[in-house]
Computed example of a mutant assay.
Amino acid sequence: MSTARDVMTTAVVSVFADTPVREIARLLLGQGISAVPVVDAEGLPLGMVSEGDLMGRNDLERVAGTEWWLQLLAGQEEVHRDWPASAHVLARTARDVMSAPVVAVGEDTSVPEIARLLTAHRIKRVPVVRDGRIVGIVSRANLLAVLLSQEETAMSRHENGVLSRALASLDGQFLHRRRPAEAPEARRPVSRSEEELPLAADFRDLVDEFERHEGEQRNALREAAAAQRRQQVKDLIDRHISDDKWRTLLHLAREAAHRGEKQLMLLRFPSGLCIDGGRAVNVAEPGWNATLRGAAAEMYLRWERDLKPHGFRLTASVLEFPDGLPGDIGLFLIWGDTQE
């Protein structure tokens, strides 16, 4: 079965959040592409900027039509006089116009699953990430030939589903290290008084041994927990919200309302799924939604499209603070008045 790794475009052109709109327009024209991902200094995706984002979302900003591209090129032509919003638009940066959060896929995501995502989220392309960083782009054009090929080979639906959901599992078990048994040493004859009155240094050695062993156990637990969180982040980046899953969540929300509850936690995820480790969520910073990745980003987009117009709210909050840092984060659907 073909995956994102097989069909993606690997020569990815990206921009930073503070890249001016004019520079993005030049880049799209020069490279012959219709969109670019927006990344931070570490290469983590923040959003996507397409031709549609640059041209605006209302009729006034689309007055100039195709000519707008020529007007953006430095020194070639003045801005269209009938476009009063143009000066404001040209002063924007990628951060101002990008679409966020980003729907992304892993390298092992199947082609049919990518096609489903493009349809579900009404988008034309998805970045492919490895360890959170973009390594490719899959567009609708990349998918067409592969999808036709899959139809010709009559790939079974079962095989398709199993392979697209295959995720690496974490072996959370670990063995505590034990010190090798020391060979018994010959002991000199001791008096009764020496046996009854041990040295304080011996007790200190016992304490040191206990603390060493406890430290090793704590470190092993931290390493196992960190590995588990990394695996969870990897899984959630490559896990997508199907229509069936979304309908199930809405059913659970309705049942919660029947019980008199005012909200439902749609998703619990490690703070590492956020590009900033959960900092924006923790301080309720405006634009926290742009830091979401993977399943959390898709959940936000589903809410924004399907539920926000009907009065539902969506909030995120840090649920725990291991070692004083943001741990797991909850994404909550709210329909009633709640204590903030």
Rank of each mutant, 00 (worst) to 15 (best):
Gly47Glu: 03
Thr9His: 07
His121Thr: 10
Pro309Thr: 01
Glu113Ala: 07
Phe174Ser: 02
Ser34Ile: 05
Gly32Trp: 01
Ile275Asn: 07
Ser139Thr: 15
Gln31Cys: 15
Asn219Pro: 01
Ala257Cys: 14
Ala226Val: 12
Ala74Tyr: 03
Glu214Lys: 11
His176Gly: 13
Gly324Asp: 04
Glu61Asn: 12
Leu301Cys: 02
Asn142Glu: 08
Arg212Leu: 09
Ala94Pro: 04
Arg313Trp: 10
Val13Leu: 13
Pro101Val: 03
Arg122Ala: 11
Ser169Tyr: 07
Ser242Trp: 06
Val233Ser: 05
His213Gln: 15
Ala280Tyr: 12
Glu261Gln: 11
Glu113Phe: 01
Ile329Phe: 05
Asn142Thr: 06
Leu221His: 03
Leu163Ser: 11
Asn289His: 14
Ala290Glu: 12
Leu325Val: 09
Met98His: 04
Val49Leu: 06
Ser110Glu: 06
Val318Tyr: 05
His258Tyr: 12
Thr153Val: 11
Asn219Phe: 04
Leu117Ser: 10
Ile123Val: 12
Leu266Phe: 12
Arg125Trp: 11
Ser169Asn: 13
Arg62Ile: 01
Ala64Trp: 07
Glu42Tyr: 03
Pro127Met: 04
Leu70Asp: 04
Ala35Tyr: 01
Ala181Asn: 10
Ala253Ser: 14
Thr119Cys: 09
Thr315Asp: 04
Arg268Lys: 13
Asp59Trp: 14
Val190Tyr: 09
Asp18Gln: 11
Pro189Lys: 15
His176Cys: 10
Pro309Gly: 02
Asp328Cys: 05
Ala91Leu: 10
Leu118Arg: 07
Gly132Gln: 13
Asp208Ala: 05
Ala91Arg: 12
Ala141Trp: 03
Arg92Met: 01
Thr93Ile: 03
Asn219Met: 07
Ala166Glu: 14
Asp53His: 02
Val138Gly: 01
Leu147Arg: 09
Arg188Met: 02
Asp202Glu: 14
Tyr300Cys: 08
Leu143Trp: 01
Asp53Met: 02
Leu144Arg: 14
Ala145Asp: 15
Thr109Gln: 00
Ser317Cys: 07
Val12Thr: 02
Ser193Ala: 13
Thr338Met: 11
Gly287Ala: 15
Gln231Tyr: 09
Val79Gly: 05
Gly47Ile: 03
Leu90Ser: 04
Val207Cys: 15
Ala201Tyr: 06
Ala181Leu: 11
Asp131Phe: 12
Leu60Asp: 13
Glu255Trp: 10
Ala94His: 03
Asp328Met: 06
